[in-house]
Nucleic acid binder design. Structure first.
Lengths: 193, 193
DNA sequence: GTCTATATGCTGATAGAC
DNA sequence: GTCTATCAGCATATAGAC
């Protein structure tokens, strides 16, 4: 065990989170099995319960790690950029690079959740902490009177998050889509038009 | 059994499709169980296998019925409207009313599919037949040079289809969101601005 | 067409040894 | 911390009577 501030972590626990994220992404939360997650790190099923209370807890842990990481990445991407559409652009590009990149954990933390999930509310709350970044960015924009800023945020995030259902491509395709997302929304709403 | 053209149907079969759609919507495909679907129409589990080959086949049947219905609804909504953004607007409003309305089958046919699903490709193909309507609508638009029409379609459908993850509201909220979707995308690309 | 009964397998989770 | 062994439950699917 290594202490990092008040956060404790171990290699084994981290490995389990990573394996769980890959399984949740590939098979969905319901489709993933504790047995297989354990097998992927060379453990027995029962050993998982030393590190986590159960499958739900594992999903929460995946979100804790993934969201902390994407919040850092997106925050860093908008650092030093003036408020306005350029800043939104930077955030969207970072969001899509993270979401559509190689690490499956980010697809897992954006995927729609089973409505029957016990820890659903808790996870929705965690996701909202990330979406606050976009809330702030859109609040900073100079928009035409009557523009619904909440809708604008939901359109932006919806267009991006839905992309995991159809996207098959490389880095340059990600950049191109990020460009389209902001261009298609920016021009009609840009007060400097 | 009643013959309708080459399509055969029975009340029981239809009831099963309806019950399956509700379960798939509420519990997800993996979370839904054949047992419960049967119970909801007052049948025994085994009796389902007289009407359908298995769970996958049931999902395909749900899509056949739901997609046929939403294709009709959206086609009817754009009838008689001149090509252009007004037509896109009409299609989006119809799409959102159907998707976010009372009948769960339409949420079931737009939900992301487990990537491990055997009949996945078949269903994706069926969905594309519906999305062809939007492909055509966007092809008809007069847009600035360099606009990526495929991206525009994916942004539009993504923004709308993601709404099932957050939308809680009534008819007037649906109208309002449909308005935002088109307004936010329309102005900048509208050559008549 | 629908039933009862059942085969077979996988699930999350626990008990307790080491 | 990790193991072996196991529990209890639910899953899809099938066989065969009526």
């Amino acid at each position: 065990m290594t202490a990092v501030g008040t956060q404790y972590s171990s290699n084994r626990r981290d490995q389990l989170i990573e394996a769980a994220a890959a399984c949740f992404d590939r098979d969905g939360f319901d489709g993933a099995s504790i047995r297989r997650i354990a097998a992927e790190v060379g453990m027995q099923t029962a050993s998982i319960y030393y590190h986590f209370e159960g499958k739900d807890d594992l999903l929460v842990a995946v979100h804790e790690r993934g969201l902390r990481s994407i919040i850092e990445a997106t925050s860093r991407a908008i650092e030093g950029i003036e408020p306005g559409w350029d800043r939104v652009q930077a955030a969207c590009t970072a969001h899509l690079h993270t979401l559509l990149g190689e690490e499956p954990i980010f697809k897992a933390i954006m995927a729609p959740l089973p409505s029957t999930l016990g820890v659903r509310e808790q996870i929705v709350e965690m996701r909202e902490a990330y979406e606050q970044i976009f809330r702030d960015l859109i609040d900073e924009l100079d928009l035409p009177d009557g523009t619904d800023r909440r809708h604008l945020r939901l359109i932006l995030l919806g267009a991006m998050n839905w992309s995991f259902t159809w996207f098959r491509g490389d880095r340059s395709d990600i950049e191109a889509f990020a460009g389209s997302v902001v261009t298609d929304l920016r021009a009609p709403l840009d007060t400097g038009r």
